[in-house]
């Protein structure tokens, strides 16, 4: 318990720690469902932990715990005092504390997912908290949302458009959404999915795997274990272009990431 133990509090040193992935998006777009899907898809190959930022107490954390996708102890809940965007952007102290507590207790980890509380289109993660971020929209919010943009839509490392199965019912044109998103995102990837129909969200999981692999590659010199990385290599992802799995066809890509390497 010396001073050196606390040193990582001093600088947000990326070396030797897990990738921190923020998942944000409006209320009801499916952030928690996507988080659960990623836990299902990646829980065997990556060492995972999750921080939820519930609006109300621990509802999202409890949902994840009940879903049984991850050891309940690896899910921490942060209360945000009515201001979910504050907790991921302006004052990230509580989230950082939760992330580091999980890393101390269960580390070394490969990936810590920080799921934001449902917010609006302007809510993005501070780079001091999330190394990469996914913004989740759903088609029932209207097919004009991508065109309207906003920092979440335009700057997230990955834009996920969820609930494609509802598109016919709500009259959303996925082609329009895809085109508009591409226009505002300057080449950053967009993925369409329906977590309800595809509970492991394979395309998204594959993107995350690529990002985690790239992160571990970049910062591995303080990350001595080689665990789980062989798996990611099997996908032959270029670490620098995780968007290789992205597409803009307007239809959900069939899952193809099923060859998970057992741990």
């Amino acid at each position: 318990m010396g001073a050196s133990h606390e040193d990582h509090h001093h600088t947000p040193d990326p070396h030797g720690r897990a990738l921190r992935l923020g998942i944000g998006g409006p209320v009801g777009s499916g952030k928690t469902a996507l988080t659960a899907a990623l836990c299902r898809a990646l829980g065997q190959s990556l060492r995972l932990a999750v921080v939820t930022n519930d609006i109300y107490t621990t509802e999202d954390a409890d949902f994840l715990r009940r879903a049984g996708v991850l050891d309940p102890e690896r899910i921490a809940a942060v209360q945000t005092g009515c201001c979910p965007h504050t907790a991921i952007r302006d004052d990230i102290a509580a989230n950082l504390d939760a992330v580091e507590t999980l890393e101390e207790r269960f580390g070394p980890l490969d990936l810590v997912i920080v799921e934001s509380g449902g917010d609006n289109l302007t809510a993005t993660f501070s780079r001091g908290l999330a190394d990469r971020q996914i913004f989740v929209l759903d088609v029932s919010g209207g097919d004009k949302v991508p065109r309207k943009g906003g920092p979440g839509v335009t700057t997230a490392d990955l834009l996920v458009i969820n609930k494609t199965d509802l598109a016919p019912m709500v009259g959303a044109d996925l082609t329009v959404m895809s085109r508009d998103a591409a226009a505002v995102r300057e080449g950053r990837p967009v993925l369409f999915t329906s977590v309800r129909q595809e509970p492991e969200a394979h395309a998204v999981a594959e993107w995350v795997t690529g990002v985690v692999e790239a992160w571990a590659h970049e910062h591995r010199h303080a990350h001595p274990h080689a665990h789980a990385h062989a798996h990611a290599h099997a996908h032959a992802h270029d670490a620098d272009s995780p968007e290789s799995s992205a597409h803009d066809t307007g239809s959900p890509e069939p899952g193809h990431g099923r060859d998970r390497t057992p741990v």
Partner: peptide, 25 residues
């Protein structure tokens, strides 16, 4: 207190703050 000290140690680095973190882990 823990969160404030984490923040303060980055804003106003000081052996005194390090010592507090060490004394009350």
């Amino acid at each position: 207190g823990r969160l404030l000290l984490r923040t303060a140690r980055r804003i106003w680095p000081s052996p005194v703050l390090d010592g507090l973190a060490e004394a009350v882990p």
